[in-house]
Amino acid sequence: MGLIDVKNLTFDYIIRDENDQIESSVRALDDINLEVNAGDFIAVLGRNGSGKSTFAKMLNAILLPTFGDVLVIGMNTKDESRMLDIRKNVGMVFQNPDNQIVANVVEEDIAFGPENLGVPSDEMRRRVDEVSSTVGMKEYLLKSPNNLSGGQKQRVAIAGVLAMKPKCIVLDEPTAMLDPIGRRDIIETVSKLNREEGITIIMITHYMEEAAAAKRVVVIDKNKVRADGTPREVFADYKTLRECGLDVPQVTELAGLLKNAGLPLRDGIITIEELISELKTRKS
């Protein structure tokens, strides 16, 4: 059993008319099976409307499956009595940094989750100090979130989730509204959490370069899982990615083109550094 088990997950968005009668329904997720192991760093890729955000919301009981089950450390998300336990263990960071910060002072926002869980004040103080230095926001604790940059706000949001001591963090396109610097910041923070704290990361994204930082890539398209494997394995299969409306990272594409042009490069190059070292070995 993994940390999170997704079994035959199917979800329909149901549109009701004024009399609460079902008018129509749209299938958003179709028979998804996935096992997330503790310590994983998974990037979930998919184009707009592929169902990837819906998938993220299934993991901590914000949405419940129409058919199938989602089990978080053995707890079914349909079991309402375990809801807080599930949400405490699977934290969630959303796309818009402004719309997920609740309090007017950074430290109070970080404490919002633990406050809801009834953590005692002195323990809460310790946690706030600890997680704020983990994400590098310690000197901003007394500032108003309105004066922070997008990347900083997103780091506050991550700290707010960390303060609940989760086993897993789900990030739903956390960098979509950030500038390149903020984007790099967040990816570095998230990678560090995975590496040093052993927190399982599930990151929804449509940036290939971000997916390359993950240990495992899952591609969702037309409501189904289309590919699942290491970034190398997944990116090697251009054709499937193209069909799913995704591009491979630029450097992978370049390596592929060079190879087609007759340069004997190996498969599965996903970072610029790799291509450079590969080219150097060819040269010598």
Binding site: N60, I62, L84, F112, N116
Partner: peptide, 8 residues
């Protein structure tokens, strides 16, 4: 949604 996700 964000508040619910943080156990409010």
């Amino acid at each position: 949604t964000a508040m619910e996700a943080r156990c409010y």
